[in-house]
Amino acid sequence: MKYRCDIIIKVPLRTCVETFLNSENMKHWQRGLQSMEHVSGTPGEFGAKMKLHYELGKRQMVLLETITHKRIPHEWHAIYSTEGMDNIQENYFEATPENHTQWISINEFLPLSFMTRLMILLMPKTFKKQSLQYMKDFKTFVENGTSVAHA
């Protein structure tokens, strides 16, 4: 399953991308993020790996983030792997004429088991809704400083 989300963030490109790339900010816009753990590579650089621990309701989830492409300030791509599924995410950032930032995120979910294949088939809108929520929370954090860390 593949889809595209985009949002306009009312801050300049450099500010937006610097905030996005600072892993310390992730807790402020990724609901449920409990902790991060550097695994390998130079943090934030191509090939770096980081474990992300989430608590979503009563469910615990661990994602392994691998940075697969980086051309700052315009592109940042990664693969997020978890049990039964990979998410290939391509992020594109462009300055608008108003000196704002357009963030385009292209996500492709690859099921690696029968259960995740079934989940994607039965609940495709849930995945896009979650992606849009993270993007909206990022926008709110960058524009207003509002954190979801305790939401």
Rank of each mutant, 00 (worst) to 15 (best):
M1D: 03
R4N: 07
C5N: 13
C5D: 08
D6I: 00
I7T: 09
I7H: 10
I8T: 10
I8A: 02
I9Q: 06
I9R: 14
I9V: 15
V11Q: 07
P12I: 03
P12M: 05
L13A: 11
L13K: 06
L13P: 10
L13G: 13
C16V: 00
V17G: 04
V17R: 05
E18M: 03
F20Y: 12
F20T: 01
F20R: 00
S23E: 04
E24Q: 15
M26S: 03
H28R: 03
W29F: 15
W29L: 07
R31Q: 15
R31D: 09
G32P: 06
Q34F: 02
M36W: 01
V39G: 00
V39L: 10
V39M: 06
P43N: 07
P43C: 05
G44T: 04
G44L: 01
A48D: 04
K49E: 14
K49Q: 12
K51D: 13
L52F: 03
L52A: 07
H53G: 04
E55Q: 13
L56K: 12
K58H: 04
R59P: 00
R59K: 10
Q60T: 03
L63Y: 06
L63K: 04
L63N: 05
E65F: 13
T66N: 03
T68Q: 08
T68R: 09
H69E: 12
H69T: 10
H69R: 12
R71L: 08
R71A: 10
I72S: 10
I72E: 07
E75W: 02
W76Q: 09
S81R: 13
T82Q: 06
M85D: 15
N87D: 13
N87R: 03
N87G: 07
I88A: 09
Q89N: 14
Q89F: 06
Q89G: 09
N91D: 14
F93K: 08
F93N: 08
A95M: 11
A95S: 14
A95F: 12
P97Q: 00
P97S: 07
T101A: 06
W103C: 12
I104T: 12
I104W: 12
N107G: 07
N107M: 07
N107E: 03
P111W: 02
L112M: 13
S113Q: 08
F114W: 08
F114H: 06
M115P: 00
L118D: 05
M119N: 10
I120N: 04
L121F: 15
K125N: 05
Y134L: 06
M135G: 12
M135S: 15
D137W: 08
F138H: 04
K139E: 00
K139P: 00
K139T: 01
T140N: 10
V142N: 01
E143F: 00
N144S: 10
S147M: 02
S147F: 02
V148T: 00
A149W: 11
